[in-house]
């Protein structure tokens, strides 16, 4: 039973590197998957509850292209859209929101700029601010995990769980937690890490990183205590993937949204736009 009384959500995450959708392993992009639009339609099957799109290029050179991608996606997908990557200022945030984002995913810049999360929450509401935290195991920290920034490259000196409390205090409405070594590893979430986050803060926790089969999603909710379970890679290599994942969650007794299929004539829904 979810603590929020709302349904547990299934979130499909797209990683966009230099304008292409990619798969990652331990935060390194390993495989180009193709166009974001194809991926979203592939995901969609109309069963996913939310879509996350994260820009993970090393430079800002692809930002305009990324904003264009977000804009096109928002015309085709009718679920909440979370957008992140390079959110360092209200200006970037505004560009993403104008392009159709419902929520902003903030990570690296929130360490250097203590005001950032508060400024975004003030401007768009806490419900629109998702703090993303990448954790690496380190026994030197009391929770056993350190928060990492810059796509897991830099140690921040923050205990990951302490940092979760801090971002919630600053106004983050949700927290997405990923484990640096589980990312792309197919061994499931680090349930110990997810549980520590879920116990530490009152805001919803989104589990991310390492899903290799549908049981991992169930565990994220049941054992980890996550409100939402997210995955990226797995959806790319399984046909009708989000529907299967959703059915699996429902059959396991997880409280998920009813995603009945309805036939609807949408003659003007934008077509694929490959790029």
């Amino acid at each position: 039973m979810s603590a929020t009384y709302t349904k547990n959500r299934l979130i499909a995450v797209l990683l966009v590197y230099n304008g292409n959708v990619v798969q990652t392993r331990r935060f390194k992009s390993i495989n180009m998957v193709g166009s974001a639009f194809t991926a979203v339609d592939f995901f969609n099957g109309w069963t996913v509850d939310e879509i996350g799109v994260l820009e993970i290029s090393d430079s800002d050179d692809y930002l305009d292209k990324f904003v264009g991608i977000v804009e096109e996606l928002s015309r085709r997908c009718f679920v909440p859209l979370s957008v992140g990557g390079k959110v360092r200022s209200i200006e970037t945030a505004q560009r993403y929101m104008r392009a159709g984002a419902d929520k902003l995913v903030v990570n690296t810049a929130s360490y250097a700029d203590p005001a950032l999360i508060g400024v975004l929450a003030q401007a768009f509401g806490s419900q629109a601010v998702v703090a993303s935290i990448d954790a690496r195991p380190d026994p030197a920290f009391s929770s056993g995990y350190e928060a990492m920034s810059r796509r897991a490259r830099d140690a921040t000196g923050w205990d990951a769980v302490e940092w979760a409390r801090e971002v919630a205090r600053r106004g983050a409405g949700e927290i997405m937690v990923n484990h640096v070594e589980h990312d792309g590893d197919k061994r499931g979430y680090d349930l110990n890490l997810i549980r520590k986050f879920a116990d530490a803060v009152r805001v919803p926790i989104i589990a991310m990183g390492g899903v290799g089969d549908w049981d991992h999603l169930v565990d994220g909710v049941r054992i980890g205590g996550a409100d939402a379970v997210a995955a990226g890679n797995i959806f790319h290599y399984t046909e009708h993937s989000t529907k299967k994942a959703k059915d699996y969650l429902r059959n396991a007794g997880v409280l998920v949204r009813n995603s009945t299929f309805y036939k609807i004539a949408m003659p003007r829904r934008p077509k694929y736009k490959p790029f």
Partner: peptide, 27 residues
């Protein structure tokens, strides 16, 4: 429960709701 109420939740139709006549509960 937390405020705001954010996320997916059940809507129970009441009477002959015209808006929902093409939907199959639960939704």
């Amino acid at each position: 429960p937390k405020v705001p109420h954010i996320g997916w939740n059940d809507v129970r139709p009441v009477g002959n709701a015209a808006l929902f006549r093409n939907l199959v509960p639960p939704f």
